[in-house]
């Protein structure tokens, strides 16, 4: 299953995947820009002014890391799932499949390019947030590490989504009915501290809580959960999902007859 990376082949697919979204900024970067300007305006400025500080941070500043995570993982997931599914739907993924790329090379190219889109969108959202409120980076290492891990994780989950989907509607369902609720209840808009004990415990089962709090720890130096444990678990999970991706590709799941 595993195979060494052949730099030219791998780079060719990575570059193709990267250029696919970079050359279409109206489709890939403009929508999250508009959405987040609205989030910061309405939740941060208009409503935020009426919300008390959380753990000593203004609401808009508390909100910012959560919105960065929301945008980053949504885009990483969407990019991978769309790229795989659209390629399957129009069958041009055959160009890749009939080439001498190893299955590991294929998966890593899709995962890394999709994660890069998530990171870029995350940076864009952070810059938009900085236009609304001064923001610093308290823990740069954790910020970079969590951003990489969460985008890689959701890019690799997006591959599973793209392989499993039989219709474009399935992609919408995954995003709207699974991803978005998990993120919204993952502590983007509130601190777990304000929840009753039962719901606080239930929330800890939501993996988004660890991602949002990890990135929040990077920006603000504050987290509801232990950032080291969160980073370790998320890293393990990412490796596991990437391995699943490679196995699915090797078995031709959703790709071959």
């Amino acid at each position: 299953m595993a195979a060494g990376l052949h730099s030219t082949r791998f780079y060719a697919l990575l570059k193709r995947e990267f250029q696919r979204y970079v050359r279409r900024p109206w489709n890939t970067f403009l929508p999250p820009m508009i959405t987040n300007v609205l989030y910061f305006s309405v939740f941060g400025v208009i409503l935020g002014a009426r919300i008390e500080e959380i753990q000593g941070f203004s609401y808009i500043l508390f909100l910012l890391p959560g919105l960065v995570v929301l945008g980053a993982i949504s885009n990483a997931f969407e990019n991978a799932s769309f790229s795989i599914f659209h390629g399957r739907w129009n069958k041009y993924i055959h160009e890749t499949l009939t080439s001498p790329l190893s299955y590991t090379e294929m998966v890593l190219a899709y995962v890394l390019s999709s994660a890069s889109r998530g990171v870029i969108v995350g940076v864009i959202i952070a810059i938009i947030g900085a236009l609304f409120t001064p923001v610093g980076i308290a823990q740069p290492f954790y910020l970079v590490a969590f951003m990489l891990v969460v985008t890689l994780l959701f890019a690799s989950l997006g591959i599973v989504g793209g392989l499993v989907a039989d219709d474009f509607d399935h992609l919408t369902v995954m995003n709207q009915f699974i991803l978005r609720p998990l993120v919204f209840f993952g502590g983007v808009f509130y601190s777990l501290e304000i929840l009753p004990p039962l719901w606080r415990t239930v929330s800890l089962l939501n993996p988004m809580v660890y991602m949002v709090n990890g990135v929040r720890y990077g920006f603000l130096g504050y987290s509801d959960v232990d950032p080291n444990a969160a980073l370790a678990v998320l890293s393990g999970l990412t490796v596991a999902v990437v391995v699943i991706d490679v196995v699915l590709f090797a078995r031709g799941y959703g790709l071959t007859d």
């Binding site: 052949h6 082949r9 193709r16 696919r20 080439s99 001498p100």
Partner: peptide, 17 residues
């Protein structure tokens, strides 16, 4: 469908090293 045909061919050749 995303790329001009010359780039499509370049990608295919690239996948072959």
């Amino acid at each position: 469908r995303f790329f001009p045909i010359r780039e499509v061919l370049m990608h295919k050749a690239g996948y072959h090293g």
